[in-house]
Design a protein around this nucleic acid. Structure first.
Lengths: 229, 229
DNA sequence: ACAAATTTAGACACTCTTGTCCAATTCGTC
DNA sequence: GACGAATTGGACAAGAGTGTCTAAATTTGT
């Protein structure tokens, strides 16, 4: 019933509409209740379809769950790569551009519905479905970290940063950008725009204090600007 | 019933032994299977007691769960405060001392059994038991972050660090120390000693590049040592 | 060794959930 | 409006899990 999830046309009625509606409701319920705690009637009610329709579409509870995870994994990875492609390779204002990138990363990949759901499902059910989440591991972290690291390496090579190990720097960059959101994430909350911006700003400032060029020569006053709140 | 409490002795048999055994098994099973997925027979089998004994001790499944969470929260907080008390207030070798502290923090509070279990239970069931985990939030993050921040503030005041906002610095310190363990945590794994040391080392080095005194005057060569791998 | 307390195994009633079947109804399309 | 496909709701059997009850066995304190 709502919009804005998939890039394709969303059928607002008919067979496909039910399918989408079921997937939406199932993600929600599986995340909220865990696999064992979720029941088909709940999902049916939330999706506004009859229980039988769910069985018609997906066969059984486990197949439905697998479909959900695959779907989320795919969409999340697409979102992450799309966001990585907006990495500031030729920054005009390094600090501002990195903050904006960190905010995009958080908003579009980590704090959004798909990101939140996938993260929770991995944490909750990851150990019980190793092969399913191994796929995520390879397609997700296994591919996205190197991609981000490559961007930082390029930025360093172009003289904007002073980085020894791009892989470590990439991990630390995101860790810093999220540092102040951890407690909220823990309890399944969604940080608001302000919190995301705050965390990203503080994180990027610290990142640049560590990896920024000591004296860019062009703007000597800049360094001072980084330290004041 | 009887004896004046002997606070220290751990009973290896008898009534109390069963109690401990049940708590251990229940933590394990609740974490692995989630509250809804766990069943009493599983816990009984894992604890080596009969199902009825569990009902005798704890009344019902939910009361058992609550007891587990309280127990874990209490022990974890104790561990965290004990570790905070080992913070290097008068460091001899700042980098080495902070790395050692970060490793202790990880080993004793985050990667150990209690930490891992509590984290997973909060992630999995936090939304369903708000009042229970609100307690954790107040006693845990609400008290430990300020405590750590105060230590960093003191270190800065003593001239070892150059910190604007101790709260932010404290959060970033731990975020950096854990940066390379996130993926492992996600799937419920336990990082080995090497990974913990690696992550802490890289994290502390970055932290000091950001917050270390630029030129401590006394040891000019030190700064160089921080930057090489 | 005796008495009290605790533990045990099994049976049990009850509830909840899954997944199937089916007849009636609605929907999409021509 | 008519036809085929999809959806619905309700009944249903089978299975699993909770929590209770009991009588017998075991452990504990003295």
């Amino acid at each position: 019933m709502k919009l804005g999830v998939s890039p394709d046309i969303i059928p607002s009625r008919g067979h496909e509409a039910k399918r989408v509606s079921i997937m939406d409701a199932a993600s929600e319920v599986f995340c909220r209740e865990s696999f064992a705690g979720a029941n088909i009637d709940m999902i049916a009610a939330e999706a506004g379809v009859s229980r039988q329709t769910i069985y018609n579409h997906h066969g059984d509870k486990e197949k439905l769950f697998v479909a959900i995870v695959r779907d989320l994994t795919e969409r999340c990875n697409a979102g992450i790569f799309a966001t990585i492609s907006t990495f500031p390779d030729q920054p005009k204002d390094l600090e501002a551009d990195l903050i904006a990138f960190a905010v995009r990363m958080n908003r579009n990949c980590i704090c959004n519905r798909d990101g939140k759901f996938l993260r929770k499902l991995i944490q909750t059910e990851g150990e019980r479905y190793p092969e399913l989440f191994a796929e995520w591991r390879e397609q997700g972290p296994g591919r996205t970290w190197p991609a981000i690291a490559a961007r930082f390496a390029r930025l360093a090579h172009a003289g904007f940063l002073d980085i020894d190990d791009p892989d470590v720097a990439a991990r630390q960059f995101l860790a810093l950008a999220n540092a102040e959101l951890q407690t909220t994430f823990m309890l399944g909350g969604t940080p608001d725009e302000d919190e995301v911006l705050q965390s990203a700003t503080h994180g990027v400032r610290t990142f640049l204090r560590a990896f920024g060029k000591r004296q860019p020569a062009a703007n000597a006053g800049k360094q001072g600007a980084l330290t004041n709140a």
